[in-house]
C-alpha cells in the first residue's frame, strides 16, 4: 500500500467537499469565494451555455435563496434557480458578476463622488431589501462588487443567525445575531462609508458615518433612506442632519453654493459704484 502525500490528501479533501451537482444542469468550474455561511463556485449552465455562480450553503438554509430570489433590484444579483444537494445542503445559481470587490476597487483611487456613488447604490439596494423584510447582516467591502460598467452589486445576503464581520458588524449583532433589525444594516452601511472615505473627506461625511455607526441603534439613522438623504444633502451642498453647523459655516456653505450669483451681484454693485464715482469726477 502506497501512503498518500499531503498534497494528495488535500486534493482528496477538496474533492470530497465539492458539491455534487450531477443532477443539475451546471458544471462546476472553480471555487471563487467563501462567505459566512457557504462557498461560491464559478460554474457553467450546460443548457444555456452561460457562466453562472453557484452558492452552496453550509446547511439547509434554502430560506436565503428564497429571500434573495424575491429581491429584484439592479444592485442585487439575480437568482436563477435553487435546489438541494444529495447531502442536504442548499444551493442556488445566480448571475456570475464580472467585477472588482470594493476594497480592491479603491486601490484605483476613485474620486470622492465615485466612492459616494457606490455607497448610494449599495444603500438603495439595502433600502429596497428592507421594504421586502430582508436584512443583509454581513455588509463589508468584500461583499460589494463594482462591475465593469460601473454597476454596483450587494452580494452574499445573510440569513437569520449570521454573525457579521467586524468592524462592519453592529454591536447588537455581536451580542445576539438573531435579534437584529434593519438598523444593523444602517451600521454596516455607515461602516462601509467610513471605509471608502479618503483621509481628506469633509467633516460632514465623517459625521454621517459616525451617526450611522452609533453603538446604540436608536442613535443611528431611522433607516437606510434617512442615511441616503443625508448623503444627498451633502452632495447638493446643503447642511447634513448628522453635523450641526455654526452660522459662519452656514454662510460659507451658502457662498460656495451660490458663488456665481454672488459674483454677478458683486459685479452689479461694482458697476454702480464706478458709475457713481465717475459722475463725481
Amino acid at each position: 500500500m502506497i501512503p498518500l502525500g499531503d498534497a494528495a490528501l488535500d486534493h482528496l479533501r477538496a474533492v470530497v467537499d465539492l458539491p455534487d451537482l450531477a443532477a443539475t444542469r451546471y458544471d462546476l468550474e472553480a471555487e471563487i469565494g467563501r462567505g459566512g455561511i457557504g462557498v461560491v463556485y464559478a460554474a457553467r449552465d450546460r443548457q444555456l451555455g452561460r457562466p453562472v455562480a453557484i452558492k452552496v450553503l453550509d446547511a439547509a438554509l434554502a430560506e436565503e435563496a428564497r429571500v434573495i430570489a424575491n429581491l429584484e433590484h439592479p444592485a442585487i444579483v439575480p437568482v436563477y434557480e435553487a435546489g438541494e444537494l444529495p447531502d442536504g445542503r442548499a444551493w442556488y445559481a445566480m448571475k456570475l458578476v464580472a467585477g472588482t470587490r470594493l476594497d480592491r476597487y479603491l486601490d484605483g483611487h476613485p474620486s470622492l463622488n465615485e466612492r459616494l456613488r457606490i455607497i448610494r447604490m449599495a444603500g438603495e439596494a439595502l433600502a429596497f431589501a428592507h421594504t421586502r423584510g430582508a436584512i443583509h447582516r454581513d455588509l463589508k467591502p468584500q461583499n460589494i462588487m463594482v462591475g465593469s460598467f460601473g454597476e454596483v452589486y450587494v452580494m452574499d445576503w445573510g440569513v437569520a443567525g449570521v454573525a457579521g464581520t467586524p468592524p462592519y458588524r453592529a454591536p447588537e449583532q455581536a451580542a445576539a445575531a438573531a435579534l437584529v433589525d434593519h438598523r444593523a444594516d444602517v451600521y454596516g452601511l455607515g461602516a462601509l462609508l467610513r471605509f471608502v472615505l479618503p483621509a481628506t473627506a469633509p467633516r460632514a461625511l465623517r459625521a454621517i458615518a459616525e451617526k450611522a455607526t452609533s453603538a446604540e441603534p436608536a442613535d443611528r439613522y431611522d433607516g437606510v433612506p434617512a442615511l441616503l438623504l443625508d448623503l444627498e444633502r451633502f452632495l447638493d451642498g446643503l447642511a447634513v442632519e448628522a453635523c450641526p453647523e455654526s452660522p459662519a459655516e452656514r454662510a460659507w456653505r451658502f457662498a460656495r453654493r451660490n458663488q456665481v450669483l454672488l459674483l454677478l451681484l458683486a459685479a452689479y454693485l461694482a458697476v454702480r459704484v464706478v458709475l457713481f464715482l465717475l459722475r463725481k469726477i
Binding site: L261, L264, A267, Y268, V271, R272, L275, L278, R279
Partner: peptide, 13 residues
Amino acid sequence: LEIMFPGFVVGAI
C-alpha cells in the same frame, strides 16, 4: 453708460 452697463449685468443675473 449709466443705463447700459447696469442693464447688461442685470440681464446676466
